[in-house]
Design a protein around this nucleic acid. Sequence first.
DNA 1: CTTTTGTCTCAACACGTGTTGAGAAGATGA
DNA 2: TCATCTTCTCAACACGTGTTGAGACAAAAG
Lengths: 205, 205
Amino acid sequence: MVDFAQTEPQPLKKRRLGAGPTRKVILDAARTRFAKDGFSRSTIRGIAGDAGVDASLVMQYFGSKDELFTAVMDSSGPSTMSRIAEAFDGPAEGLGERVTRAFLEVWDGDPHISEPLLALLRAAIGTQQATVQLRELIQKRVIDDLGARLRDDPDMTTRIELACSMLVGVVVGLRLVEIDALVRQEREALVAYVAPSIQAVLVRH
Amino acid sequence: MVDFAQTEPQPLKKRRLGAGPTRKVILDAARTRFAKDGFSRSTIRGIAGDAGVDASLVMQYFGSKDELFTAVMDSSGPSTMSRIAEAFDGPAEGLGERVTRAFLEVWDGDPHISEPLLALLRAAIGTQQATVQLRELIQKRVIDDLGARLRDDPDMTTRIELACSMLVGVVVGLRLVEIDALVRQEREALVAYVAPSIQAVLVRH
DNA sequence: CTTTTGTCTCAACACGTGTTGAGAAGATGA
DNA sequence: TCATCTTCTCAACACGTGTTGAGACAAAAG
């Protein structure tokens, strides 16, 4: 009965499949669905339907709905947010413009990058459960990346968090609420509008 | 069988109770719950439990979960948002400060006013379903109240919507994500931080 | 006392959800 | 051909949801 010859090294709890292209199809469908409907409103059956497969197959590829969500999150490299942090580098003049442009490029650019962030934003705001996750994402990847430069400067920390909050507000109006006057604008026009404002909150007058 | 003498003027579909204090207790519980968990995560049973009554009683007082939600919304007078619109009146100097202070007073003040707005914000951002409701709330009650003053000025409209978006972002960080550095601040300190930024986006340089 | 009316609870239904286990279809290797 | 492995579907379970109807309980009215 028991086979000692062929030692199975890791009898993992769940068989993790992923050879064929189906895994990526499901992941793409999940990313779009999560970004559009948020976490709780998205259903496994709906995602599976979009991907053209059965719901249980999604469960076999990823173990649960939560793991599918984190898989979508991990599919966007962890380096995307650090690009924002880098924008804080450099001279004080043009700081607001660099940060604003970096923010809009990340949150309004390639769907593979922006959609997971929108999904996380929806989930975080919608339920106060993923709030911790969003807080960690923003604080650890943005603030901590900046930690070396503003060590023990609570005033600057507050200013940076305010700037990020305000830019998230712009993203909410642009991508989630889809306010006409904002959607109509070109990105550089938005930068021109917003950059002086971010500059004002970032640098002491 | 048919009684013509005692004319019942309105045989409403559902008996609308509301004499005792229970209706208000349920309404308060619903307001808090909606603000904390959003619409979809809030359950009738949970609200009823907080109010100390049975779930079906909630259904008898209000006809459905949606009607309960709109009842909570209506419980905050429609005049709360117009207070923000009024802040746009007056001279250009100090405009950012007035608007910022009005915004924070409404969204961070009396829970009877702020909690329904937070609930609506959660619902709108969480699901893109109540997005229309939020868009109408902001656009009709803020923009349209300002319509007389900025008739045919798309540039100013864009600036106002951006200012509102950024201030909503601050509210999100302050009340929903609850970022430490923001929660710790006094309201006037926040106004001092944010007001120059709002001023910058509202008035042409 | 009996009846009615208002207030409230109990038990249940119908539905959608995440999740699971059994098994079919097809390719691969012995 | 037989066995095996991967990929995928079908049917079902367990649970929580909004919602409903019947009835308990008390107070007021007749």
